[in-house]
Nucleic acid binder design. Structure first.
Lengths: 117, 117
DNA sequence: CTAACATATGAACATGTATTCATGGATAGA
DNA sequence: TCTATCCATGAATACATGTTCATATGTTAG
C-alpha cells in the first residue's frame, strides 16, 4: 500500500521533496535505458539465447536464426559495442559469446516473467 | 568456458540441433522484447522510479519530471496498456502506481547494473 | 595467383517511436 | 452556470532503428 502523493493536497514543496529522492537522475536513466534497449529487440534476444552457453561463429548463427549474414553481423556489432558480447577470431571464423553477467541475469529473469504471463 | 560451435567443424546437423534447444522461439522473443522495450526509455524509467513506492497523480508527475502533461500522459498510457501500472480516479485527479512485481525486480536489478559500471 | 568463403560495414529504405500541438471531456469551485 | 483545473487522445513531426543491398577486407583452398 503506497503513499498517495498529490502536490495539491499537501504543501507542494513537501510532495516534491519526497519524490525528488525517488527520481533517478537523467544520466542514470539514460544509462539504464541503454541496457534495456539492447534487450528490447526479438532478434537480439534470440542471439543472446544462443550465446549464453556457447561460443558460436557468425555463419552458424546465420543458419540457426534463418537470417541474412548482414543482419546478424549488424546486431552483433551492436551488442559488441555495448560490451555485452565478446568475439574471438580464429582463421576466417569469428566466434561470439555473451560477456556480461548482469545482462545474463536480466535475460533469465525476464524469461521467467514472460512465461509467467 | 562455453562450448565452441561452428557448423563447418562438426556435422552441421549436430551443431544446429545443439543450438536449436537454446534458441528461444519467436513468440517468446517478442513477448520478452515487449517487456524490455517498456524499460528502454529514460522518461519511462524515471516515471517508474517515482511510482515504485508511491501512488502519484498526473499533475504532480508533470511537475517533478519537468515535462508537459501530454508527454507524461502518453507514457502513462503506454505503461497502463502493458499492465505495468494501475490507475485510480478520485475526483478530478488520477493516481498512478507501479503494478508489476517482475518489472520492479528488473528495474532494481538493472539499476544495480547501471551503477556497477 | 585465383576463386571461394567468412565477416564487416556504409548507405538506403521502411517502419517505429517520443514529443508537441490542438482539442475534448470531466470535475470542482465561484 | 461559468470558469478553471486535471487528464486523455488523435494528428503531425522529427528522430531512431532494423533490415537489405552493395561492397570491401581478409583468409583458406586449389
Amino acid at each position: 500500500m503506497p503513499n498517495t502523493i498529490c502536490a495539491q493536497d499537501s504543501s507542494e514543496a513537501e510532495a516534491a521533496e519526497l519524490l525528488q529522492k525517488q527520481l533517478i537522475d537523467s544520466q542514470t536513466a539514460m544509462s539504464l535505458a541503454e541496457i534495456f534497449k539492447a534487450l528490447s529487440d526479438p532478434t537480439r534476444l534470440r542471439l543472446i539465447s544462443l550465446l549464453t552457453e556457447n561460443e558460436v561463429c557468425v555463419h552458424t548463427l546465420e543458419l540457426v536464426m534463418g537470417m541474412t549474414q548482414s543482419a546478424v553481423s549488424h546486431q552483433l556489432r551492436y551488442l559488441r559495442q555495448l560490451g555485452i558480447v565478446r568475439y574471438r577470431k580464429e582463421g576466417r571464423h569469428v566466434y561470439y559469446a555473451l560477456d556480461d553477467e548482469h545482462v545474463r541475469m536480466l535475460f533469465e529473469q525476464g524469461l521467467l516473467h514472460a512465461k509467467h504471463r
